[in-house]
Computed example of a mutant assay.
Amino acid sequence: MSHPIELLKTRRSVKPREMNGPGPSPAELETILTVGARVPDHGKLAPWRFIVFEGDGRVRAGEVIANVFARKEPQAPPDKIDAEKRRLMDAPLVIAVISLMRPHPKIPAWEQELSAGASAMNIITAATALGYGANWLTGWFAYDRDALDGLGLKADERLAGFIHIGTPSRHIEDRPRPALADIVTRF
C-alpha cells in the first residue's frame, strides 16, 4: 500500500452508478464503522450513529423513499416513482450517518454536527483505504421528515449523509481541485 498521505492526497468520490459488487466483507464493514467512530468528539458525547443498508435493506429503504415521494407528488409518473425506489441500489453498501445533538452546557450543537461530518469523512477514507469507491450524498429524502421517520430516525435526529460504498466499475478521473492560493490566507 502507498503511504497514507498519498491516499489522502488522491482520494476522490466515485458515483454510485459507477460502483458494483463486491462491497465490503463483514470484517471490513466493522473496520469501516470502527474508523467512523474514531473522530474528534469533544466531551465524548458520540453525537452520531450509523444505519447500515445492504442487501434487502436497500430495497426496503427504497420502498420507504418511493412511498413518501408518491404521497407528496401524486401526479408523478410510475417511472419517477421507480427511480426513487432505486435511490440506494447502485452501491452494494450504504451507511447513513445520523447526527444527534446531545444537550451539553459546554459543547454547542455546531461542534457535535462537525463531529458527525468528521465521522462521515472517516468512513469514506476507511472505505477508500480498503480499496473501495465511496461517495457522500444526501438528496431530498435526507431532509424530508416523513422519509427520515420511515428510515428509523428519531424526531431529534438529522441525516448527515448517505455514504455509498462499492467496487469502482472503471478508473475514476480526478476533478479540478481549488488552488491553495485561492483558499489559504495567513493571519
Rank of each mutant, 00 (worst) to 15 (best):
N135L: 07
E18Q: 15
L130P: 04
I163R: 05
R38T: 14
V35Q: 10
F162C: 08
V184S: 02
D144S: 04
N67F: 02
D56R: 11
L130W: 00
R177M: 05
T138G: 02
A70P: 09
R17A: 12
E113N: 09
H42W: 06
P103R: 09
R102P: 02
L45H: 04
K106G: 05
G55L: 06
E111I: 03
H104Q: 10
P105D: 13
V97Y: 11
R86Q: 15
V64M: 09
G161L: 08
L148T: 03
P105L: 08
K106T: 14
P24S: 04
V14A: 05
I183K: 12
N20S: 15
W48I: 01
I51P: 02
G21I: 04
G166W: 06
W48M: 02
K106R: 15
F53I: 10
W110L: 07
D82M: 07
T128D: 13
E18G: 00
W110S: 13
S115C: 11
T128K: 11
D56H: 05
S119M: 12
A116F: 05
K80M: 15
I5G: 01
D144F: 01
K72W: 00
A116E: 06
T34C: 01
G36K: 05
R38A: 15
F187R: 11
T185D: 12
L130G: 03
D41L: 04
A134P: 02
T138V: 14
A27K: 02
D79N: 14
E18M: 12
L93N: 05
V14T: 15
N20K: 14
A142C: 09
V97E: 04
N122C: 13
L88Y: 10
T10S: 14
H3S: 06
F162Y: 15
G43Y: 05
R49S: 12
G139E: 13
A83Y: 14
I165F: 00
A142G: 12
V39T: 13
G131W: 03
P103L: 08
Q75T: 09
L29I: 01
R17M: 11
P40F: 10
T185E: 14
S13M: 09
P26R: 01
E6M: 12
R71C: 00
P92E: 08
R58S: 08
R71W: 00
P40S: 02
Q75E: 13
N135S: 12
G166V: 10
R11H: 09
A160T: 15
P92H: 06
D82F: 06
G62K: 13
D146F: 00
M121N: 04
